[in-house]
């Protein structure tokens, strides 16, 4: 039976979808059977960043409303045979979602997978609630700014009330140069406020948006520092003790951008 993990943040635009796709792909690269579920009903985009939009036939609302079976809606990723997507509907809104029905669907799906990653929408309303309901664990995504951290704190409080087992933190779009100039929150300060286990720091990297616009998952096509960060998250989720990358600020000129942490 698989691990059901919701990827959520409160704040929008911090990288939940990017992280769901890339961490999901990284877990699949490790040999795990993974399905990523787009819970952003009405504003779906997980299929777009994975380049699968023209392969979508059915979506989660079709299952919920009885128009298809579960495996008819699952879309297999282009490169990996153990990596699947369950798309969201673009025709409905989050108010149309029945939380119990979603819960039941995910409960059935998790029997066939090692990992079920639920890409939560922003906010704390019905969409968020439906993404959280079936989840047993959570990944909180923040960017290093006060708004994001405040929203995450709210969300963590709600998840604690719900009784979620394990919650870990991913800091996305981290720019060490800006942190050093004190224009961006330091990761230690973020961890201090939120009081969560830090499971990953993903550096700001142009290649991420670039590959999304081309409909390609970064970790499957490019090998750079962001890829390494995503892969490390997957390895830590699997129990490996991986030291954090030493993300030193970029030096102009000849010297290399990063070196491995001790």
């Amino acid at each position: 039976m698989g691990r059901v993990i919701v990827v959520t943040s409160g704040k929008g635009g911090v990288g939940k979808t990017t992280i769901t796709a890339n961490v999901g792909a990284s877990l699949a690269k490790l040999g795990k059977k993974v399905v990523v579920v787009d819970m952003d009903i009405g504003l779906r985009n997980l299929d777009v960043v994975m380049g699968l939009e023209n392969r979508v036939v059915y979506n989660i609302m079709d299952i919920a409303e009885g128009r298809c079976k579960i495996n008819q809606a699952l879309v297999r990723e282009k490169h990996l045979s153990n990596f699947f997507l369950l798309p969201a509907s673009q025709m409905h809104t989050k108010e149309d979602v029945n939380i119990e029905t979603v819960y039941e669907i995910i409960s059935i799906i998790k029997e066939s997978f090692d990992y079920v990653l639920l890409d939560s929408p922003a906010g704390i309303e019905n969409g968020f609630k439906s993404a959280v309901a079936p989840a047993e664990e959570a990944l909180i995504v923040v960017t290093p700014d006060v708004s994001s951290v405040r929203d995450a704190d709210r969300v963590i409080g709600l998840l604690e009330n719900k009784g979620i087992e394990g919650i870990s933190l991913i800091i996305n779009r981290y720019d060490s140069t800006l942190v050093k100039k004190r224009k961006m929150l330091d990761k230690n300060d973020i961890v201090d406020v939120l009081g969560l286990d830090l499971i990953g720091v993903v550096p700001e990297n142009k290649a991420v948006i670039d590959s999304e616009n081309r409909g390609e998952i970064l970790v499957l096509t490019t090998n750079n520092v962001a890829t390494k960060a995503f892969e490390n998250i997957a390895r830590r989720m699997e129990g490996e003790d991986v030291p954090f990358l030493n993300l030193v600020p970029e030096k102009r000129g000849i010297f290399s951008i990063f070196k491995r942490g001790e």
Partner: peptide, 8 residues
């Protein structure tokens, strides 16, 4: 017995 989070 815990931190008071935003919204509490």
């Amino acid at each position: 017995p815990h931190t008071i989070r935003s919204g509490q």
